[in-house]
């Protein structure tokens, strides 16, 4: 999977929010907010060129947080799906 072009993580109202860069409309009714661990993953992917797999996310989670591999994998798959649903990443 890949972060869609133009989407960046930024601070909006003290929250980690993913927005499209440029002149696009920011709808406060449909804002995509990431929690701390999701924001951590997003930043890691960003610095790594934007491509990722759920497996890679799970690796990062295990490395950064004190959780077992199985939980990390489940979380990574759920997160990838919700990013796909939100339209901020592409297959």
């Amino acid at each position: 999977m890949k972060i869609k072009e133009g989407f960046v993580l930024r601070d909006v109202c003290n929250s980690n929010v993913v927005v499209a860069q440029g002149v696009e409309n920011i709808d406060f009714n449909k804002i995509i907010k990431l929690n701390d661990s999701a924001a951590y993953l997003w930043k890691q992917i960003e610095t790594d060129g934007g491509s990722f797999t759920p497996d890679k996310l799970a690796d990062l989670l295990v490395k950064e947080y004190d959780i077992d591999r199985e939980t990390a994998s489940t979380d990574a798959v759920t997160l990838s799906q919700s990013w796909l649903d939100a339209g901020i990443v592409a297959e």
Binding site: V12, V19, G22, V23, E24, N25, I26, D27, F28, N29, K30
Partner: peptide, 12 residues
């Protein structure tokens, strides 16, 4: 900030 950058903003 967002408007200064040229975005439009939707609010309820």
């Amino acid at each position: 900030e967002l408007i200064k950058e040229g975005h439009t903003v939707t609010l309820t």
